[in-house]
Amino acid sequence: MKKPTSTSTVYGAISVVNAIATGKGSTLGISLKVKAKITLEPGFTGISKNFANDRLVNKIIRTIIPNKILNNNFISISLTSDIPAGWGLKSSSAVSNAISLACYKLIKEDIYDKAVLNTAVNSSLWAKVSVTGAFDDACACYFGGINLTDNHYKKLIKREPINNDLWVIIFLPNGIYRGDIMKLKFHKELFNHAFKLAIKGDYWRAMNLNGILINSILYNNYEPLLCAIENNCLAVSYSGNGPAIAAVVYKDNIENLKTSLQNFNGKLIVSQVNNFKAFVE
């Protein structure tokens, strides 16, 4: 007898405007992805997984899957990911979305996007893997494209596809110290201005302003950002709270910017932007 199984695919994202200062953020989907496979094995109990973060995973599972199933099945979770963890590239949001989506598929034919996202976001808050719940991150990972959200109210304000000809060069710097992220809240007006630019569709100006603000407050490491701007990227910013730096470029400028950024101490990742929605099988 075939064991009940579901496999979800969710994508990564980068920041356009950081949400910590105002509760409102903007994010852009990228093609790095996470896959979560969940299998139920009747007759046993327990949860097995090939990754850490017990609190987050257990909260999602116990929120979605009824006790009568949990008490009569062994749950096996296998996760594969292209997204480096701990760099601000929304790996936690992608993972929580992927597990939430796969869990809902096991118990329901009709899956509601809002339920998947709310479970992932609320569980992230409960497990303290996010300051705001990262609804902006969750939306970009789940829907793709550009997303603007009010994280406090879990409201999707605006979403639209992005030009598929765009790519993102991600720089993972070595030996960079990050300041206190709560200091971002002292600069609400400036982050609110960046968000207003994004609302108007001026995404690259908003992202550049976000990059300057994050760098000034948390890092004081201007050289990679200036290098990206001087090599004709559309926009460059720290993603999330960093330390990853993401530069948006057209395809024909990828090699030029990669060559320039290789002068700095760190690792480069190249990803196309993503407009595809998460899916489950």
Rank of each mutant, 00 (worst) to 15 (best):
I38C: 06
S123Y: 04
S6C: 02
Y238H: 08
K277I: 08
L40N: 11
F195I: 09
T7Q: 11
P4K: 08
G86N: 13
N210D: 09
N73L: 02
T132M: 01
F44V: 06
K3H: 12
E160P: 00
D54M: 00
V34I: 13
N265D: 15
Y112N: 10
N73A: 05
I199M: 11
K251G: 14
Y238G: 01
A247C: 04
L234Y: 09
N210P: 03
L268R: 09
P84M: 12
A98T: 14
P224N: 06
V168L: 00
G25N: 08
I169H: 01
N164W: 00
L125T: 03
I212L: 13
S48M: 10
K185S: 08
N72A: 05
K277T: 12
E230Y: 06
I146V: 15
T27G: 05
T27K: 03
N72C: 02
I157P: 00
P42N: 14
T149L: 07
Y238M: 04
I14N: 07
F264E: 10
N263K: 14
S124N: 04
N67L: 11
A85N: 13
I254M: 07
N256I: 13
E41R: 05
C233L: 05
N122Q: 13
S100R: 05
S31N: 15
V236L: 05
F191N: 08
L268Q: 09
S78M: 10
A278Y: 04
A198V: 04
A228D: 10
D252L: 01
L56Y: 00
A127N: 06
C141K: 07
T149I: 09
C227W: 02
N241H: 03
L148F: 09
W204Q: 11
N220Y: 00
N221P: 01
V57D: 03
G145W: 11
H187D: 12
K2Q: 14
S26D: 10
V34Y: 00
K196T: 10
N164C: 02
G23E: 08
G88H: 11
K183R: 15
L197A: 06
T259M: 05
M182C: 06
I212E: 15
N241Q: 07
L101Q: 07
K267T: 15
K155Q: 13
H187E: 14
P4E: 11
I157C: 04
D150C: 00
T9P: 01
D110E: 13
N215S: 05
Y11R: 07
G29Q: 12
N253A: 08
V121W: 00
C227V: 12
I14C: 09
L261Y: 02
Y203E: 10
N263I: 04
K200V: 02
V280G: 01
R205A: 11
N163T: 03
T9L: 05
T119H: 06
S6A: 15
G145P: 12
N210A: 04
A13T: 13
L172P: 01
V116M: 01
